[in-house]
């Protein structure tokens, strides 16, 4: 991928073709818009219009099927302030982001550093295996973990019994349920972050590290004072991606493993819109939550793009 990844800024543009095709001036002016129409129609109908409609629905009370909606003003938003399900979801989502920041940054980075010690084909094999969960569908992965977590015949229950413990019910324990979800999400994203870190480490000029070594810096010293600072753009990219995408990644494992239970204990911002909209049929409430989440995460996204704009880039 070329430098200046996002290319979002207007910047100096290359000379562009002025339309001079057969068909005269009219076509020349219209042509670019015609090329845009297919994508534009879809994005307008399935992104922008629904976005407006979500805001609209957030001012109503509606059960998804009734022919009439009741206008309630900001009542749905006021309810959010005191809604236990919503705040449990916020707390669980923050918990998930913090835990995943550790599990999917520190750990993959350590493994990536290890990978750079190994050369050639062996490294490629390690990389391919560690990346593999990324291509497996999250839904299938969650079904496998549902089996692993099974309190009686699950793999974890068996292993716990082997070392003399009692099997415990991960998914029905209010304290543990969210962690079971976080673990699946971390397992699924680990390999991706690992590959990003390997690419980031490879992009650091070897001479800098060798120079530090020659100056007598030890292994850890070189990492701490040369590698780590130079890796900052990569690390920031991983942190912000985790922050931005965590709520979306939480939906599938939550839906398959716990449905937000027991008693809302594992609900989170990835699942709560679905739960409010399609499980308890409170569309207005679900829409107000959707608006809140959108506004919140728009801020993170803007940060993310600002960062990319500065020319952070990666080569495989």
């Amino acid at each position: 991928m070329p430098k200046g990844v996002t290319g979002l800024s207007a910047g100096p543009t290359r000379p562009v073709l002025r339309s001079r095709d057969a068909g005269g001036r009219g076509w020349a002016v219209l042509a670019p818009y015609v090329y845009l129409v297919p994508a534009a129609v879809v994005l307008a109908a399935f992104v922008y219009w629904p976005l407006i409609e979500t805001v609209n629905l957030s001012f109503y009370e509606w059960n998804l099927v009734s022919p009439s909606k009741r206008f309630v003003g900001f009542a749905n938003y006021r309810e959010l302030l005191t809604s236990q399900a919503f705040w449990t979801s916020v707390v669980n989502t923050i918990l998930a982001i913090l835990a995943m920041s550790l599990a999917t940054i520190a750990a993959p980075l350590a493994v990536a550093v290890a990978a750079l010690r190994v050369q050639g084909v062996v490294r490629l094999i390690y990389r391919a295996v560690i990346f593999s969960p990324t291509v497996v569908s999250m839904a299938i992965a969650s079904l496998i973990w549902l089996w692993i977590y099974n309190p009686i015949q699950g793999l974890i229950a068996h292993l716990v019994r082997l070392v003399g413990g009692q099997g415990f019910a991960w998914l029905t324990d209010p304290q543990l349920a969210i962690w079971a979800i976080i673990l699946v999400t971390a397992w699924k994203t680990f390999g991706y972050n690992f590959v990003i870190f390997v690419a980031g480490l490879l992009s650091i000029p070897r001479e800098l590290m060798d120079a530090a070594r020659i100056d007598g810096a030890g292994e850890w010293h070189t990492f701490r004072h040369v590698t780590w600072p130079l890796l900052t753009p990569t690390t920031l990219f991983v942190v912000l991606t985790t922050l931005m995408l965590a709520p979306q990644y939480l939906f599938i494992p939550t839906q398959i493993l716990t449905q937000g239970g027991p008693n809302q204990a594992s609900n989170n911002l990835g699942y709560i819109i679905w739960e409010q909209g399609f499980e308890v049929f409170r569309v207005g409430n679900a829409s107000a939550i959707a608006v809140a989440i959108f506004v919140g995460f728009l801020a993170f996204s803007v940060m993310h793009f600002r960062l990319l704009e500065r020319g952070v880039h990666y080569e495989a």
């Binding site: 818009y33 090329y35 994508a39 922008y48 629905l57 819109i273 569309v283 995460f297």
Partner: peptide, 28 residues
């Protein structure tokens, strides 16, 4: 490859759709 009126704004509008999580708009 084309110069046309509204290009920058339209491009932003296209790219900005990446910032909308699907769950936020799934009900409509």
């Amino acid at each position: 490859r084309f110069a046309f009126w509204g290009r920058e704004v339209l491009f932003y509008l296209f790219v900005a759709t990446m910032l909308v999580p699907f769950q936020v708009i799934m009900i409509p």
